[in-house]
Design a protein around this nucleic acid. Sequence first.
DNA 1: AGATAATGATTACAGATCAGAACGATTGTC
DNA 2: GACAATCGTTCTGATCTGTAATCATTATCT
Lengths: 160, 160
Amino acid sequence: MSTNQQTDRSRNQGGAAFLLAQLGAHAARAFAERIASLDLTPPQAGLLRMLAATPGRSQRRLAEDLGMPPSRFVPFADELEGRGLIERRKNPDDRRSHALYLTERGVELLAELREVGAAHERDVCAALSSDEHRQLTVLLRRVAEQQGLTPGVHPGYRSS
Amino acid sequence: MSTNQQTDRSRNQGGAAFLLAQLGAHAARAFAERIASLDLTPPQAGLLRMLAATPGRSQRRLAEDLGMPPSRFVPFADELEGRGLIERRKNPDDRRSHALYLTERGVELLAELREVGAAHERDVCAALSSDEHRQLTVLLRRVAEQQGLTPGVHPGYRSS
DNA sequence: AGATAATGATTACAGATCAGAACGATTGTC
DNA sequence: GACAATCGTTCTGATCTGTAATCATTATCT
């Protein structure tokens, strides 16, 4: 069953899994640099998108989706609230929990964020034709689904 | 110029760049869990592979390729040396620099590491046929090359 | 109803991790 | 032969991290 070592070695370093990790780190870093112009970090952008998709969720659930402990979520949300991008409202049904919403300014910033994201997408896939770009997206989506990843959610963030 | 917001939104969260970041983080984490059985972290595995590819390099250059400052490389190499996997030899041409090499045990561990890497590759791409797997690899390699990434080198590591 | 357990947000804290400056040893330059 | 530059290393201060304790509120159980 074992091919020779040369084959195995090139498989590991040039295989799809390694390329995914390498390109993923690269894409994440490039995206972080882009949105730095909006004074946002990737996890902050992630929260804004999550709030746009499903508003009014509790901090605990949001923290879990972002892959951070609830204790760390507090100062994280504090800053965004201090900048007037998100809003904590008391949940009338359960006054322990805070329901998070985007403010008007948050919605505006999210619009800019989407433009930056589109530019990022174009830049990362500059090597591909339109057809290949679609092809790649389809393949990646299939892999992501089979691996059990939640669409639109990017855990494993490191705060900054 | 602007498509409607629905389109932009799905582009950003389901686009290739986002999927790359998401899948990259996933693949990296899964790989980290796998090689934990060998008592290795991803940056440690990266160093072993780099030493197998080009032995005898200086610590400074290795540190740069791994994306870590030289000061942090010292305890990093210390542990691997303490476990008898790598070896520091004095460079006779320049006695300031240390040339790093794999030991015999390091070579043995690297062989196991390749098996784990191959299993990881199979697992991550379980959703794809052989043809699609090849297709994906080709596309990723093209993107990686155009983005200026060095083959086989994975910076942006976080130590652990 | 009343005591008790469980949950959400927050704070406190202690340990790990980080990058940059400072330091000897060695080498290149003038 | 003095002076600057480089490599590895150590030191240090700041930052980041997750766990545990805390307070308010809600669910559960008798």
